[in-house]
C-alpha cells in the first residue's frame, strides 16, 4: 500500500542551521580529503599545495590580475555558449524533426563531435588567427556539438499525441510549431545550455592556449610553465566555482520556466 505522502530521496531539513550544514558538507569533506592527502604522504606534499596556501594565493591574485582573468574567461565562455546554442537549437530541431535532415546531417555531426577541440587548435589558428575570434571559435565548436545532441534527442522524444490533439482543436502547422513544439522544446533548450556551459568551461583552457594573455586558462598555462602549483590550483578552483555558479543560476531559471514538468527530482 503506497502512502500518499511523497518520499524524497534527498535529505530534507527545515532548520536553517541544518540546511547550511548540509550544503557545506560536501565542500568540507573535499577540503578534509585534500588535507588528508597531504598528510598521508601518498603524494609528495611539495606537489600538493595546502588549502590555506591556495587561499592565500587567491587573495594575493585577487588584488592583482585575477578579476581581469575572471572577466575575460567568463565573457569568452558566455559568447561561445551563446553562439553555439543559438545555432544548435534550430539545427537540432531540424535534425530531430525531419527524417531527411537527420539522415543527411546526423553522420556529419557525429563525425565532428568526436574531434577534440585541442586537436583542432592548429587549424583554428590558421583560419582565425590568434585573436579573440580563434578562442571563441573553439568554444563555439564545443558548445554547438554538445548542445545539438541534447536538442536532437529532446525534439525526437516529443510525443506525437500533442500534435494530434492540437490538430483536432483546429491548429495550423504554424500554430502547432509555436504553441506546442516550442513550449515542449524549452526544457531541452535549457538542458542544452547547461551541457554546453559545462563543456565550454572544460574547453576554456584549451581555447586559451591560443596566445592568450588574460584569462583563467592563460593564468593556468603561465603558472604551469613556472611550476607554480598554487596558482594552478587557484585557476582551477575559480573555473570550477564560476561554472558551478552559472549552473546553479541556470537551474533556478529552469525550475521557474519548467515548473509544469512532472519530475522525480
Amino acid at each position: 500500500m503506497v502512502d500518499s505522502t511523497i518520499v524524497t530521496l534527498q535529505p530534507q531539513s527545515h532548520h536553517p542551521l541544518a540546511r547550511a550544514a548540509l550544503i557545506a558538507a560536501p565542500w568540507l569533506a573535499l577540503v578534509s580529503i585534500w588535507y588528508a592527502i597531504r598528510a598521508s604522504g601518498l603524494v609528495n606534499p611539495s606537489l600538493v599545495p595546502a588549502p590555506h596556501a591556495v587561499l592565500a594565493k587567491f587573495f594575493e591574485l585577487a588584488r592583482d590580475r585575477l578579476p581581469l582573468d575572471v572577466w575575460m574567461s567568463t565573457r569568452r565562455v558566455f559568447v561561445g555558449v551563446f553562439l553555439g546554442v543559438l545555432v544548435a537549437v534550430p539545427v537540432g530541431f531540424a535534425i530531430g524533426w525531419y527524417r531527411s535532415v537527420r539522415g543527411f546531417l546526423d553522420p556529419l555531426i557525429n563525425f565532428f563531435r568526436a574531434l577534440p577541440p585541442i586537436a583542432l587548435i592548429p587549424l583554428v589558428i590558421v583560419y582565425f588567427g590568434i585573436g579573440e575570434a580563434a578562442k571563441t571559435a573553439i568554444l563555439f565548436y564545443a558548445s554547438f556539438f554538445s548542445g545539438v545532441i541534447v536538442m536532437v534527442e529532446g525534439i525526437g522524444q516529443i510525443s506525437p499525441i500533442y500534435v494530434r490533439v492540437a490538430r483536432t482543436l483546429g491548429a495550423s502547422d504554424a500554430e502547432i510549431f509555436a504553441k506546442v513544439i516550442v513550449p515542449l522544446a524549452v526544457p531541452h533548450i535549457l538542458t542544452a545550455v547547461r551541457v554546453a556551459l559545462g563543456v565550454a568551461w572544460a574547453t576554456l583552457v584549451a581555447s586559451e592556449l591560443i596566445a592568450a594573455q588574460q584569462g583563467l586558462g592563460a593564468l593556468i598555462q603561465n603558472a604551469s610553465s613556472f611550476f607554480q602549483l598554487d596558482i594552478i590550483y587557484v585557476g582551477i578552483v575559480c573555473i570550477g566555482l564560476i561554472a558551478l555558479a552559472m549552473d546553479l543560476l541556470l537551474r533556478a531559471a529552469t525550475r521557474r520556466l519548467v515548473a509544469w514538468q512532472d519530475r522525480i527530482a
Binding site: S159, I161, Y162, R164, V165, P183, L184, V186, Q261
Partner: peptide, 9 residues
C-alpha cells in the same frame, strides 16, 4: 484520445 493528451505545460 485514450491517452488524454492534456498539455502538461
Amino acid at each position: 484520445f485514450q491517452e488524454y493528451g492534456v498539455f502538461p505545460w
